[in-house]
Amino acid sequence: MKPPPFRYVRPDSVEEALEVLGEHGEEAKVLAGGCSLVPMLNMRLARPEVLVDVNRLEALSGVACDNGSVTIGATVRQAALERSPQLRRELPLAAACTPYIGHFVTRNRGTIGGSLAHADARGELPLALVTLGGSVLAQSQRGQRSIAAEDLFVYHFTSALAHEELLTAVHWPAAGPGWGYGFAETAQRHGDYALAMVACALARRDGAVVEARLGLGAVADRPLLASEAAEVLVGQDLGGPAGDGAVAEAARLAAAAAEPFDDLHASAAYRRRLVAVLGEQVIRAAWESASGTSGSAG
């Protein structure tokens, strides 16, 4: 289990990185935290000619909050979402799902941008970004563009990033007043890839849901938004007499929206079942936490 030969490049600037990516195209691979890429190298499942190490690029390591959004540099470590009081406050959904990303040690090294660019359909951060309706910034020698989260994840391990593009930053909508969040996943073991996960963000005003987003992870070839299910919640007082019915209906629709598959660990039917169970759980958690305090479940 040793990597095949490659050329290692550690650019001093984003421009230099983009130059290398532009020159080598799909023969180049960006090395960020390495938590997913290096195992693939060690198993010789990935064989890039050039590895572009972006870990030292200062331009990719910043965090900025303004106007209701948080911009996080691509190489900010996942652990920052757990440890930074500011990020925990501004991004409660991302913070809630972070403890489920791998383990303590891998979160020290794994990056937020890397996790998104990797586009694992079972990834927690891709689900959080889709659920919140965030976006990423992609740069190449031809310029830069913003890619909405919903458009970023094409299918399992495949993002909309072109080979010569570098994901440089992530835009997250920050928690607003009246918003609540819920996240839950079921995995075989703590830290494993989920069999299913559900995230919910909803805004509560005057005793009713005014806006809701429901995201499903690990139950399709990409994170999904269950829009029809979320729509059912709008206008409802989830704490009221009709609340249980709305939550159950939303969860049922979410399960129906899932596109799960069979694998070694669980059947598609089971994953669909989990979506319904977890869906109810996270919708309730989001409703509870929307009453003023930042919240999470899981």
């Binding site: 399960a255 129906a256 660990h265 669980a266 089971y270």
Partner: peptide
């Protein structure tokens, strides 16, 4: 997942949607 499949096969608890 295996326990759930078995319960579902037995017509119990599983509650397949």
């Amino acid at each position: 997942p295996r326990v759930w499949e078995r319960l579902a096969a037995a017509g119990e608890g599983g509650d397949r949607p």
